[in-house]
Design a binder for these strands. Structure first.
Lengths: 195, 195
DNA sequence: TGACAAATGGAGATGGCCTCCATATTTTCG
DNA sequence: CGAAAATATGGAGGCCATCTCCATTTGTCA
């Protein structure tokens, strides 16, 4: 999938600088006040270079998004390797809310730029869903989480959280949703499914 | 709020034509393939007229959105006046899903255009929430719906539904969510809150 | 009906987006 | 190592969508 061609050293360097600068500007929420050409200057490259690497604003957004997703998946894997399953899941989800809260501008900018028919968005979503599925599966194997709920539900909750960013007290509600989800997932003796 | 100034007759006519044509083009999903000036031609007015009424694509989107919200609120009020409360609520929510399903292009276009800091979006959301609140309150008064859940939860569900439009079998899932919500709202004898 | 106000439309200025290519840098190979 | 080939760079300039401006038309009011 990402096996295109090995980039020349300087090209790779420029590409990385562009993505890093983009994340920075996205996060600050300043991206739409900027001419695309000026963004090139800001990153210290010529416009030609910018356009070769990223033909459109959207392409740039997709690259940033891709990196973000990769980092999150990585984090999920690391947590799963070092913590008990249930704890790994909880830590990951709570961390997700922290992450969204800390990078509101980034989330908003990415959402705006990829609102229209972005294959990358779907692909990233799937990658994240796979990571969550793994976390869940481990917890189910542990016996700490019920086995009749799949990752889709959790993903919808996360999606809802990140989409509702303008709610007055978003943070409290988001934490509430996560608590609800974690609580709901816990395996327990109940009326319909006695353990 | 909308008490600016009475428009001259021809101005009002042009404005209406523009909004109607915009809704049509949005719905077909063709809006982003169009030069803004060409849209003016398509609606049968000069570019000057277009720009006087709607300085930006976003302004046009907000006007369409506003109309859409007004129609939905109207529908809620009409249902509330002619049906038993619980039925009115159910019909409204189901109709909401139908509406979103039938106007996918419109929903997508509006979401794209108003993704960025749109006060109109927030305002429309509040108007819709008020309508749902009224429907709920009536049903609570009837005794057919529990009284410890507010409209916010329902709004989040609707929001999630309209945002997840690209899911493979969106329709089934959406219906599922509505069923879940309606079911959850029904007043009943249960373990924690005996009636 | 006349006079004033409001609205129109489209020609043309403006300025952002993107291409193109002469030059510079990296890599490969003798 | 040095030269040739391959790859990448940057920014001047063309192109075209966006938006403004105003001479003309249309509606309103007395």
């Amino acid at each position: 999938m990402t096996a295109d061609k090995p980039l020349r050293a300087d090209a790779q360097r420029n590409r990385d600088v562009l993505i890093a600068k983009a994340r920075e500007v996205f996060d600050a929420g300043d991206f739409f006040d900027l001419r695309f050409d000026d963004f090139a200057r800001l990153a210290g490259v010529g416009t030609g270079t910018l356009y070769r690497h990223f033909p459109t604003r959207e392409a740039l957004a997709e690259a940033v998004y891709h990196g973000e997703v990769a980092a999150l998946c990585d984090r999920a894997r690391r947590l799963q390797a070092t913590l008990p399953a249930a704890e790994a899941l909880a830590t990951f989800l709570r961390g997700m809310v922290d992450h969204i809260a800390a990078h509101e501008g980034l989330a908003r900018t990415l959402a705006t730029l990829m609102a229209d028919r972005s294959g990358a968005r779907a692909e990233g979503g799937r990658a994240l869903e796979r990571a969550v599925t793994d976390l869940l599966a481990a917890a189910v194997r542990d016996g700490t989480v019920r086995d009749d709920v799949d990752a889709g539900a959790v993903m919808m909750a996360l999606h809802g959280i990140s989409a509702a960013h303008d709610r007055p007290d978003w943070r409290a509600e988001a934490d509430g949703v996560i608590t609800l989800v974690l609580d709901g997932l816990r395996r327990r003796r109940d009326w319909s499914n006695p353990v």
